[in-house]
Design a protein around this nucleic acid. Sequence first.
DNA 1: AGATTATTTGTTTTCGAAAACTTCTAACTA
DNA 2: TAGTTAGAAGTTTTCGAAAACAAATAATCT
Lengths: 356, 356
Amino acid sequence: MSKPVTFKEVAELAGVSTQTVSRVTNGGKGVKPDTLKRVQEAIDELGYVPNKGAQLLVRKKAKIVGVISLEMTLQGASSIVAGIRVESEKAGYSMSLTVSDSKEENLETAIKELKSQQVEAILINLPVSKEVSEKLVEKYKRIPFLFIDVPSEAKVNQVSADHYEGARRMIELMLAQGRRKFALLNGPSHSHAANLRRQAWENEIKKADAELIINVEGDWSAESGYIEATKLLLKPQKIDTLLVANDQMALGALRACNEQNIAVPQQIAVTGFDDTLNSEYFNPPLTTIRQDFKEIGKQAVQNILTHLVHKEEISKQVIPIELIERQSTMIVQKEANSVKKIEDLLQEIQRLLPNV
Amino acid sequence: MSKPVTFKEVAELAGVSTQTVSRVTNGGKGVKPDTLKRVQEAIDELGYVPNKGAQLLVRKKAKIVGVISLEMTLQGASSIVAGIRVESEKAGYSMSLTVSDSKEENLETAIKELKSQQVEAILINLPVSKEVSEKLVEKYKRIPFLFIDVPSEAKVNQVSADHYEGARRMIELMLAQGRRKFALLNGPSHSHAANLRRQAWENEIKKADAELIINVEGDWSAESGYIEATKLLLKPQKIDTLLVANDQMALGALRACNEQNIAVPQQIAVTGFDDTLNSEYFNPPLTTIRQDFKEIGKQAVQNILTHLVHKEEISKQVIPIELIERQSTMIVQKEANSVKKIEDLLQEIQRLLPNV
DNA sequence: AGATTATTTGTTTTCGAAAACTTCTAACTA
DNA sequence: TAGTTAGAAGTTTTCGAAAACAAATAATCT
């Protein structure tokens, strides 16, 4: 039942030497069409597949890129990894994925795991500080690293989305709409991306001499968005804009607004960040910043592979973002069907009257 | 810069034989504490990591489970894989992940890739028909398979959520609320899970002698939910319940209702399926069926590993589901703050009046 | 003490595939 | 026609780690 088919069995069945089998599995160069066909048939017949371990052992180049990522249930992380996978395959590389968190100890375990697979490079897709990133590069200098969303000051290969510019463009739009009273719902402060967004917002608010009324922090989850938004909406100080650091928290925030009968965007505008698959269908659809996750993954692979060949300087790349304006901030819309809406509202009032 | 450190260098540095190094890396049984320490230091000093390829080659057992999954950007798929990963690790196995779609040709490529890594078993986490699943098991009989969400008639190892029962419980709840006019927004018909849910709904509607007014199909995405729901809401026949086959489509459907000023749940109740992370924060929060994805992954691993040892009969397991009732279907709530709500509605009407 | 048993370490062989090298045959050139 | 060359296939060696086997040393028992 077990015992995988090997080389020799194929060679025997086809009546050739093992080396000829090897030639066939590696493209069939220098093998007569006749023999090639015979060997191919033997391979199919026996269901032979070359043993990766043996190949890995004997070849100097493994053609594998290693990836260390956050838990893949997170939207952004998994999209980036998907981009990496596709681009690696295009380049003739396979991808080996390890899941870890940002704890240095776990990161090192993950690196060792990948090293043991003889990967040619390691892409790190989780929040890492400047210090840790530089330390890792120094410690494992036999293998090139590339970091996604590491502080730009870090002297390491990196690809990042333009968080600062994205956040800046968002608040620029809000200011242009005449909004002045801001609440910020930031990401966790250990995240570099979250800090950039926060900085952009704080700087722009100061520059515009607008009011930063509330400044809180969630953990990226819809739940935390809901909890924090609920709390801040209950405070006496009134705001006109709620800037949220990602779409999931924004979903929770929208829910909180709805529960407290606060009209979005009429009373408060709410914005997100990421443009996840669903934010177009939130109630109301969410104004947000699109990060092209797949592009980030793609560039990460391309950069590290050229680095493997040319071994140049440190490469730092920033992927542009895009502002997506939707109804959660659109105030100046003509409401063509207002009559119908008023009718509906009256109906709703009628329904509620018995309760009073 | 490249050239990984090997065995011998460590042995030389520590002044022992290579076999002793091997003993140390494998737990250090039967090595004097003194020697062990010396070898460990040499390992750390050189940054030695055993070559997985060589290990794979020489050991008969690889201790790897292979997983073939849909693109990981999908909520459910990635949660299942996360469950598999955690459980494999607990059992001392590593997990090798390959992404594929349901095309037989791509599936076979994925299987070969995993076989080449000497995996001990293959878990398939994507929709596969009875025929294809049985064919694969027959063709690759040297390696045990387990399918997640394959038709239960298929004579293969399987773990599935109880889709039929989940859908049945959902419509049972709706009928108990006195709802009679149903619209179904199903998943794609090539999906086994989608078919089970549809069957449950159709059967129960017939049994209860309720009306099945509309019956359409989406592709699981929020976008398709929005498009299909918009179309069906514009039809002249009125419905009181919209059963949607997953949460993402339900999100799109909720958006469609909102755009057309249809109150959920007062005018139409909307239900989902899956209980994704966010559906608790939809507007309104979504009544849905919770599938415990991590549990599915966990059971899949446990079943296939016991199968490896005992090699018994085919194992078929069904994971129970849970009905989560939220506001998208709750009609009988006391509206304590009706006065406040009416005030808000009047305000909204005032705002709209200039447009008329 | 002598013999038996454990403990610790070393030596040899093995795994499967491919690279490096070799041999054989057929084709082409002068 | 002999000699050179290219194409096709075979043989040998190699990769790194671990298993199988063997030996040497230390510990225990009678």
